[in-house]
Amino acid sequence: MAAPQRLFDIRRVIGGLFLLYGLILTVTGLFDGAQEIQKAEGIRINLWTGIAMLVVGGAFLLWERLRPADAPASSDASSGDEE
């Protein structure tokens, strides 16, 4: 964590939420019965959406890990007082 006034990274929040949603949907999808699958035209939609959300969530976390918030070049903290 940097200086306290720096805003947290939204990529972590989206990544976390999508991993959680992905997990919930994937588990639900694994236990979907014939009725749920039939409703979605034979597609295991919970399972596939769950897996896709896991991938997207993971990608956000990976992105944040590989490229942490760009350090601002100019003096970030002083920008509030310039007027």
């Binding site: 939204i10 929040v13 989206i14 939420l17 999508f18 949603y21 979605a40 035209e41 034979g42 597609i43 939609i45 596939w48 959406t49 896709a52 959300m53 997207v56």
Partner: peptide, 25 residues
């Protein structure tokens, strides 16, 4: 702004399954 960014991804996740199943039908 943060909520708008998050909302964008959630609304896409909500609409894509509808498109996929709809096109299959």
């Amino acid at each position: 702004i943060y909520n708008e960014v998050m909302q964008f991804f959630v609304i896409v996740a909500a609409l894509v399954p509808i498109v996929v199943i709809g096109l299959t039908r």
